[in-house]
Amino acid sequence: MSQTDLTIAGVGGQGSILAGVILGSAAVTYDDKYATQTQAYSSELRGGFAATWVIISDEPIEFPRVTHPDVLVAQAQDSINRFGEMLKPGGILICDSDMVQEVPQTIERQFRVAATSIARNRLQAPVTANMVMLGALCNVTQVVSRTALEKAIAKAVPKGKEQINLEAFNLGFEQVKNM
């Protein structure tokens, strides 16, 4: 049974949870896989912590809670402080290098993507940093196909914003390739 457990975390307003919803939706709707997505956030809608847990599997998922993820996507230093230690041994960390200063030495497989500056400087849309991270995640893990994610993004984002979000996703995807 192939199953991947993921945590995507950031601070409120960065769109971490939306990224998790899109990931799960892509798996279920376009890749014919099984997925669960859960989330937690602080009471303040902006600036508090936000995290989503996604499980993607080839078979129906029994236990839907992520305890030790295979992949941690960290959009803020707070995310690493909170969830870094839970990463499975040999797990993958993908972090936004603009937002993260310190990464524990124990995490060997690290991918640093300047998602916020890419979104701000190349797209003039800092809110699309989550899509940059999703692009990087797609390329690194291949947990969901690129086409499935592209379709899921186009469906999930507000009308008229499809193109810029897909561009952000592709920039993230290419960024990893060029590492």
């Binding site: 919803v21 669960t36 998922i61 839907p64």
Partner: peptide, 9 residues
């Protein structure tokens, strides 16, 4: 609250 807020197929 867990399954109420959980997404799944």
């Amino acid at each position: 609250g867990f399954i109420g807020h959980m997404r799944e197929q």
